[in-house]
């Protein structure tokens, strides 16, 4: 009927405008309400979290398990209180300082052992040394990989830990999770600090590098062969021919990640990444076995 009536008649246009405006008004009201509600919720939440954090500040600082749970909770809602010591959360909790301090200790541990291990160290070993630096008397062996923990670390803890695990030390205890978080916060320094998955272990690398596949596989294998390999062992375990093995081993030597023992037949290639300078005698143990 009115099909041919030109669209956009004045009345129509006005009505359309009015409708739009009213929609907008309603929409505005709704979103205002929602925003207000959200803001109220946020405030409540923030107040609660603040109270919670105040109440538990000590626990967050000192209890590694509690800290991890708190981290997870904050992570779930998109808050990262540990990102820096400067922000609101950092000031409130002092937790940024915690990771800052831990970061310095990790750098210290990694640099002081770099001469020996070429800047690659097992996570559990980094943790153990940092704990010793923090005055934990009986650093416990790795928590996350209790069973697969290195022979070296286990041998060490067996040798040094008295029967009773003292509870007084808990205030300085840290978890591997803390170390990993802290290493991530070091990344922006551009110094090459990173976590590498090698075999079934996490390793902290303090030198900018990329391991190729063969190198990673060899380092993974060495974890199961008491820290050293030769071409025969690699052939037996991985089925590689000598050329491929030698290439991989030589590049690991060049990267300072391995040391060669030419008084063994065939030559033995060692990873000193687990080396413990003063207190234990792990290398004699391994060599005599």
């Amino acid at each position: 009927m009115n099909r041919r009536r030109p669209v956009g008649g004045r009345a129509y246009a006005e009505r359309l405008q009015a409708t739009n405006e009213s929609y907008q008004r309603v929409g505005q009201t709704i979103s205002d309400n929602q925003m207000e509600q959200l803001q109220k919720q946020m405030e409540t939440f923030r107040a609660n979290l603040e109270t919670f954090a105040r109440l538990h500040r000590k626990d967050i600082q000192k209890d590694p398990v509690f800290r991890m749970h708190f981290q997870k909770m904050c992570g779930n809602i998109g808050v990262d209180p540990l990102a820096s010591s400067k922000g609101y959360w950092g000031e409130l909790l002092g937790v940024g300082d915690f990771y800052y301090e831990l970061g310095i200790q990790i750098i210290d541990v990694c640099l002081s052992t770099r001469a020996l291990n070429g800047g690659l160290m097992e996570l559990s070993e980094v943790k153990r040394r940092v704990e010793r630096m923090r005055g934990v008397r009986n650093p416990s062996p790795t928590q996350n990989h209790g069973n697969s923990g290195s022979k070296w670390a286990n041998a060490f803890s067996a040798a040094t830990s008295s029967n009773s695990q003292s509870k007084e030390n808990t205030n300085m205890e840290i978890t591997e999770d803390d170390v990993l978080r802290s290493v991530k916060t070091l990344a922006p320094l551009g110094s090459g600090f990173q976590v590498l998955q090698i075999g079934d272990k996490k390793m902290i690398s303090s030198v900018p590098r990329e391991l190729n596949r063969d190198q990673s596989v060899i380092l993974g294998l060495v974890q199961k062969t008491n820290g050293h390999v030769n071409v025969n062992i690699v052939r037996e375990k991985l089925g590689w021919e000598t050329g491929r093995t030698t290439t991989a081993l030589n590049t690991l030597l060049e990267d300072s990640l391995m040391w060669i023992d030419q008084q063994a037949e065939p030559y033995e290639y060692w990873v000193p990444g687990f080396f413990e300078p003063e207190e234990d005698d792990i290398y004699a143990r391994a060599a005599s076995s």
Partner: peptide, 24 residues
């Protein structure tokens, strides 16, 4: 120190940086 029991400690390391550390 326990590195005295590390077998490769008795081989002059072919990688220059490793050798420097070894000599130190």
């Amino acid at each position: 120190p326990s590195i005295h029991n590390f077998p490769p400690f008795y081989t002059l390391q072919p990688t220059a940086s490793t050798w420097k550390n070894q000599a130190d």
